[in-house]
């Protein structure tokens, strides 16, 4: 499998996981307890950290699986 394909599949997986986590955070903060900044800011921060965490885990796994 080509390098580009590995990159694409990996990106789909880690982006997917990160988006899901960010949305989960956003949903968990619904209601009146948190203001908009906290909800959006928190979701973005969760997304960034989730990306950083999942990228180095997902990419080698995809490489291993498809090569």
């Amino acid at each position: 499998m080509s390098e580009e394909k590995v990159t694409t599949i990996s990106a789909v997986i880690y982006l997917g996981i990160s988006v899901v986590l960010a949305l989960a955070f956003f949903a968990a903060t619904g209601g009146s307890a948190y203001n908009t900044t906290a909800r959006y800011g928190g979701a973005i921060w969760v997304f960034i950290l989730a990306m950083i965490i999942t990228m180095p885990v997902v990419i080698p796994q995809v490489k291993k699986r498809y090569r």
């Binding site: 921060w45 969760v46 950290l49 965490i53 885990v57």
Partner: peptide, 12 residues
Amino acid sequence: LGVHLLALAVFL
């Protein structure tokens, strides 16, 4: 990786 996980846990 562990530190980023911890940073996420601390934030939450």
